[in-house]
Write a protein that binds this DNA or RNA. Structure first.
Lengths: 194, 194, 194, 194
DNA sequence: AATGAATGAGAATTCATTCAT
DNA sequence: CATGAATGAATTCTCATTCAT
């Protein structure tokens, strides 16, 4: 399995750094190779093409995200609590990896429609996790019986995403993790009065 | 004033069509010129460069959005009602212009960081409108007194944006306008029980 | 005769200024038109094309040069004296028109081979004048009987030209007219000892 | 060192041929690449840009000139003799490379002011060589004690340059090397009688 | 497995010139 | 005579990918 070889990870990690520091369109394969300490041609022994590096990068990181979050919510009972843990984990993981935050929130979005469809495929795992939490919450009576799970998932993901992107566009200059709790509260109760 | 000349609009409209049908990276200036029925060089009598076409396009459309929405909410009293009108208008305007929806939700995001920062400047007018509604709603006691306006704005914009993008990524195959009301309800009351 | 109409001269003079200040390759027809205070299209009522402006400019100025110099040497008897007057006049006329000096010594040389051949045609009048002086000097015994007139003309013109170009390349920052006498002495006696 | 690789020379030599045969403005990079037998992109592995090819070409050839001339005058004692060798060498070297003569005397002068300033920097080595000969000749009493070295250098270079350019403009149809001796004589003794 | 020199397709922009008014 | 909006041809340079070593 190629994915376990050390150079595979070297290249993925190099790609995150190079894209974050140079931007998507200035992240040439040769730069990634240099950062990874390998020859240009070597990249193609581990990845089909440049797009494959980016998809693999996203799969790799997002897979780790979902895994970590699932671990953490395993012990929680309430859906609301699970959501809080999810938002906290997501925010916290991007807080500690500034490069990755830039890559996922800004740079990777500059990819073309084709690549974005593939990225969306990868995202489905995360979205399914959110929907599972919402479904459980509705079943248990914690959430409205008429909650539209798909829309609610779009609200939750859209809100987190917009919060993250705003934070990155503002050069990550405020504490993101402090926003997890109020964002969670908003998602649970909306703008209206309790 | 160049912006009022007929060729200015011809070119903007041609750009929307060409970008929507060919994708951002396949929208060459020569294609836009052909679609607009002018010579390549004519483009540069009306726009500084290719990026200027895209910014102008966004300014033009987004300016129209904000203007229309402001007109419609002018007569409304309740903040919640204003929000509903806003979501309805936004969804409805993109529903009737499939090309524009593709351009704003997918293609324009492939632009580089520089252009995206300029687009964000344009977006500020819209975001300010949302914040104004939230502020009025909080002042009038309609919304929670401790509502964090910035976060609430991020939730509203993020939710609409995610809903729109999902719709476009699914080839606009379901009725978007029907989602305005339930999305609005979600934004007002969140996932929790009323 | 078009050449006597005021706009003809306006355009020629505008061309000198625009080329001197912007350089040959940045001297667009539209800039010359603007400087001359006429519309772009008007240029083409007085000149066949852009190249025609440049040739006319050169003919105009060089014709004036030859005319002035011929006037001044008319009263002189000695060939050496005539040469001195010629060098003095040439240097002096370019000294008082900095723009023209830049145009003839630097900018017009950037034209293509074709245009340069036409410019050379115009130059022939000047070169013939030099050869006439040399011929007379040789006939009268003032110069060596075996003086190769063609080569001597190349020396005289080449030396003046190099002196002028060096002066312009050094931003015309020293007194050019003071060089006329020593240059003349050099041309008469060469590097050797008298 | 790139300058020693065979492709570096291939490209320089191809550039001389292409510029001489097509003219400066018709010497596209793709033509040079084709003539050199390499791909367009390969050019950019050896040269920063098109201008860099031209500067390198000039440096390369002019450096060779100065080197060869210095070798040849090393054994000579008299300054006048050194000058003769210099003129002979210069004329002879351009006589045997018709393409190069066209490029240095006509085509390279069409470059813009920026490139011409860089070319002038390269020329300084040659001009310094001339001044060194003149200085030695003046010190040894061979030349006038009051010889203005700067002006004399301008005469020498200007005369050679004009002679060369005239020869090239006349399609190199007479024997240039035969002119070295009479040109030298002119430079030493000027137009006056001995 | 690893290298890195070589490839070559692809696109924004300028500006001399025209011609309908 | 004069205008100036419109035209459209033409060229450098980048960079993902290959393949001989």
């Amino acid at each position: 399995m190629k994915k376990t070889k050390p150079k595979y990870r070297q290249i993925i990690d190099a790609a995150v750094v190079v894209i974050a520091e140079n931007g998507y369109h200035q992240a040439q394969v040769s730069k990634i190779a240099k950062q990874a300490g390998v020859a240009d041609g070597t990249i193609y022994l581990y990845f089909k093409n440049k797009e494959d590096i980016l998809i693999s990068l996203f799969q790799d990181k997002m897979g780790y995200f979902v895994e970590k979050i699932e671990e953490k919510i395993a012990g929680k009972e309430k859906a609301a609590e699970k959501l809080l843990v999810m938002v906290e984990s997501h925010f916290s993981m991007l807080s500690v990896d500034r490069h990755l935050a830039i890559v996922t929130q800004l740079e990777l979005r500059q990819s073309n429609k084709d690549l974005r469809h593939k990225i969306n495929e990868v995202l489905k795992g995360y979205l399914a996790l959110i929907e599972r939490i919402l479904f459980d919450g509705r079943e248990s009576g914690e959430f409205s019986a008429d909650l539209d799970i798909r829309l609610a998932r779009q609200m939750i993901f859209g809100t987190m995403d917009e919060t993250l992107t705003t934070w990155v566009m503002n050069d990550q200059k405020y504490d993101l993790t402090a926003l997890a709790e109020p964002v969670h509260k908003l998602l649970i109760s909306g703008c209206g009065k309790p």
